[in-house]
């Protein structure tokens, strides 16, 4: 299903279902308009970072609409469909449904929560960068929840400065995210 941006006619890369006053509506935005709306997009074909949405929500303050059905922007998977099939739809799902999956993974893996062992040759450096990114994201979320928008904006800039992984250099998020961007498949 190919959506176009709500504000112009370019292909949309951000898809979200919103509920406002009990009414469902869908938001589709191209990269440019998504950035304008406060979504943080990786430089190339990556997904929206959840922190971008958090910022946007915080900015929209009290009237912020609630998300209804979370849906993977790459493969269209929903958590309900994932539970039913028992299968994850794509690498990005692991990020998109991180919270829901972490419980499932712990249950199916006898309590294990993190990988130990082999990794792609080019992944080592990115594993470190990912750790920094995770910490910044966590701090950012905290800042947003404390409504400390000044600090949140600074953390967001740091995150951006860290550089988003691109599909040819990254292992970490390139691997788990480069397939996103609204059906952009080779």
């Amino acid at each position: 299903m190919q959506h176009h941006c709500d504000r112009c006619n370019n292909p949309a890369v951000v898809h979200e279902t919103l509920v406002h006053d009990g009414k469902k509506s869908e938001v589709h935005l191209c990269a440019e308009h998504a950035a304008e709306g406060g979504y943080i997009l990786p430089t190339q074909g990556g997904p929206t970072l959840i922190v971008g949405k958090l910022l946007e929500k915080a900015a929209a303050a009290a009237s912020a609409p609630q998300r209804a059905v979370k849906c993977c922007p790459s493969c269209g998977m929903t958590m309900a469909a994932l539970r039913e099939s028992g299968l994850v739809g794509c690498a990005l799902c692991y990020r998109q449904f991180e919270e829901e999956l972490s419980g499932l993974i712990q249950r199916t893996q006898e309590g294990a929560t993190a990988h130990v062992g082999r990794h792609p040759a080019h992944a080592a450096e990115l594993i470190d960068r990912a750790a920094v990114r995770n910490r910044l994201s966590r701090d950012l979320r905290e800042a947003v929840s404390r409504e400390d928008y000044e600090r949140a904006a600074r953390l967001r800039d740091e995150l951006l400065a860290l550089g988003e992984p691109t599909s040819d250099s990254a292992a970490e998020e390139a691997s788990s995210e480069s397939s996103s961007g609204g059906g952009r498949h080779a």
Binding site: G86, L87, V88, G89, A91, Y94, R95, L101, L104, I105, T108, Q109, A112, T113, A114, H115, V116, G117, R118, H119, P120, A121, A123, L126, I127, A130, A131, A171, E172, A174, S175, S176, S179
Partner: peptide, 24 residues
Amino acid sequence: ERSLEYAFHPRYGYLTACTTNVGT
């Protein structure tokens, strides 16, 4: 791996369709 890029996650390792295979 030298000619194909694998889906890999810093926390969950090699990503698989079923969570029973994730990691190694």
